[in-house]
């Protein structure tokens, strides 16, 4: 089905997700690169030796979750915008999710935006915690928002109310 719709199944998502224990320890990268393509900038970008693609650049990236500190450098380097950071260390009720977001207008810290799933359906309202857009991210800003834990495996995007 994934090849027909572009929407990964729940099982595929669960398989690449870190454990709740790991998420509760602090920020960690989640890479949704489900199919082999010739690409390895995530590995090149990582300063912590936490992403491994290997000699054959067609291999899927593997995250070493002990090495990963959730620094998010890989998020703005991935041409597929396939990486997000999940952090469950801040609260027992919510998780913080950081995603690449290449649309104007950018949200501001404190804004309420719609959280969307992998099909673009609205899940709930969420609060934007941080927006980063330094020159080194090369026009791929990162947005962090806080969301109820029940949406952990579903949320993958946000939408501002001002939409075309």
């Amino acid at each position: 089905m994934f090849e027909k719709t572009g929407v990964p199944s729940k099982e595929m998502v669960r398989e690449i997700f870190p454990s709740i224990d790991r998420i509760n320890k602090g920020p960690v990268a989640v890479i949704e690169c489900y199919k082999e393509i010739p690409c390895n900038p995530c590995q090149t970008a990582c300063k912590y030796d936490a992403i491994h693609v290997g000699e054959d650049i067609n291999h899927r990236p593997e995250v070493n979750r002990d090495n990963c500190i959730g620094c998010a450098i890989c998020l703005s380097k991935c041409p597929g915008l396939a990486i997000m950071i999940v952090d469950g260390s801040k609260s027992e009720e919510t998780v913080q999710i950081r995603i690449p977001f290449e649309f104007y207008p950018l949200p501001k810290e404190g804004d309420t935006v719609k959280a969307l799933d992998r099909e673009g359906n609205v899940l709930t309202d969420v609060k934007v915690v941080k927006v980063l857009n330094p020159k080194s991210f090369d026009r791929t800003p990162l947005v962090t928002f806080e969301i109820d834990r029940e949406y952990l495996y579903d949320v993958r995007n946000i939408r501002l109310e001002v939409q075309p």
Binding site: K4, T5, E32, G80, L116, R118, R156
Partner: peptide
């Protein structure tokens, strides 16, 4: 075609914006 021809990361990117892909 019965399947998406492009890289699936690109497909997922537009799908999560709510755009349907009709193969």
């Amino acid at each position: 075609a019965p399947q998406i021809g492009g890289y699936l990361v690109h497909a997922s990117k537009v799908r999560r914006m709510g755009v349907p892909i009709l193969t």
